[in-house]
Amino acid sequence: MGSLKNQDLKDRVHAWMFDAALPFWGSIGIDHKYGGYVEQLTPDGRVADVEFKRVRVIGRQIYVFSHAYQMGWKPGLELAEHGFNFLTKHAWQGPENGWARTLSKDGAILDGTADLYDNAFALFALSWFQRVSGRHDAKNWASKTMTFVDQHMRHENGIGFLHWSPASGLRQQNPHMHLLEACLASYEAEPNEQAAVLAKEVAGLFEKKFFDLKTRTLAEFFDEDFKRAQAPDGEIIEPGHQFEWAWILVNLKRLLGIALSDPVRALIGFGEEFGVDQRTFATYDSVWVNGRARSTTSRTWPNTERIKAAVALSELDGIDPSGVFAQSIGYLFDNHLNAKPFGTWIDQVDEVGAPISDKIPTSTLYHVFLAFAEFLRHENGRT
C-alpha cells in the first residue's frame, strides 16, 4: 500500500461513494419487481437468486440512502422511501411481535422470529429516514419499535434483552450494541426520552457486563446472567466490535453526556495492539482474550470500524487519526474495494489478501458508507 495524502484519500473515498457505490446500489441493488432491495450479489456482481430478504439488510439500505441524501445525493430520499414502504408494508407483525427476521422476495414473512438485531436495524433505519424526510409516520414507527423492545424483549431475569425470542443458545452483546446505536440515531433525529432511557440502560450493560477494563476486552458470548461464557466461547474477541463500540460510546457522550472515556481508550488500545496485522494493516476477524490471533482472515467490515474508532479517539483526545486512515482505507481499496463491478466489494480475504468469499452481501454497504462518511466529516471539519 502506497502512502496517500489526506486529499488523495478524500478524493478516492468520495469518488467511490458517490460515483460508483451509490449509483450502482441505487440501480442494480433495487428490487423494482417486488419492492425493497436485493439481498446479495454473486461474486461477479450479478443479482443472486436467493429466496429471502433480511429485515436487517432492508434497514441498512434505508440508512445508507438516507445518509447519502443528507450528504447531498438527491436520489437518496426516494430510494430510502422505497425501502421504508416495503419494510412497513410487509415486515411489521404487530405490537406484541415486532419486526420479522426474514421475508420472501415478494414480502411474505418467512421467519417471524423477533430478533433484537433486526429490530435494532429497523429502528436505525426509521430514525434516519425520519431525520432526512421529517415524516411523522417514521417517528411513530420508531416509537412503536422501541416500545416493542422495551415491553416484549426483556430477559426474564431482568438483565438486558433477549437476542431473539424465544431465546436459545448463549446470550450476545452484539444485538445490544446495535440497539444502542439505533437509540442514539432516534435521539439525534429528535431528542426523546424513550430513546434516551433505552440507550442509558444498554450503556450500563456494557459497563457492568460486556466489557472488562482489566483485560480491555469486550466479550461476545455470555451465560444467562450475562457472565462471560465458558471457554472457548467466552474468550472470543472481535476487534471490529471493539472499534465499533468505541465509536458508539463517543456518540453517547456527545448526545447524552455519558462519558465512558477509559473504556473507549481501552477498547481501541486492545484492538490496535492485537487486532491489526502490523505488516498488512488488516483488521483481524477475531482474536482470543489473551491477544493471540484466532482468525487471521479479514472481512470488509472490521476494517471500516477501525476508521470510525480513529475518528472517535480524535474527538475524545485529539489524537491524530491520519495514520489509521491511510492504513485502513488503503487496505480496503487494495484488498476489498478493488472488486468488479466497482462500487462492490470482496467480503472476506485470507492473511495474504486472497479472496475467500462466495457472495457480495448487500449488508456490507452500511459499514463502508458509514465509515467513509465519518472520515469525510472529520476531514471536512463538520460537526
Rank of each mutant, 00 (worst) to 15 (best):
W164E: 15
R154D: 05
H241P: 03
F124H: 12
T217H: 00
A182T: 06
A120Q: 09
H178L: 10
E201T: 11
E181L: 00
F226P: 04
C183A: 14
L198Q: 14
W141V: 09
E201V: 00
G112D: 14
K200D: 09
A229I: 07
R216E: 15
W128F: 04
F226V: 02
V132D: 08
K200Q: 13
E181R: 00
T215C: 12
L252F: 01
N140V: 13
L198K: 07
S165R: 15
A195R: 00
I159F: 07
A199I: 08
A246G: 04
L252N: 02
L198D: 01
A195T: 01
D225Q: 15
W128K: 02
F121D: 11
P191A: 10
T217Q: 11
H176E: 04
N251T: 00
R228W: 10
K214N: 13
E207K: 14
Q194D: 12
A142D: 05
P175Y: 11
N174D: 06
T147H: 12
G158Y: 07
Q172F: 00
V197D: 12
H152Y: 14
P232A: 07
Q172S: 01
Y117Q: 02
D223L: 08
L179M: 14
G134I: 11
A189V: 10
Q151V: 05
L123D: 08
Y117I: 03
E220S: 12
L162C: 14
H163S: 13
L198C: 13
A142V: 08
G204C: 01
L218K: 07
E244C: 01
A122M: 11
P166H: 07
V149R: 01
V132A: 10
T145Y: 05
G158S: 06
W247I: 09
L162M: 13
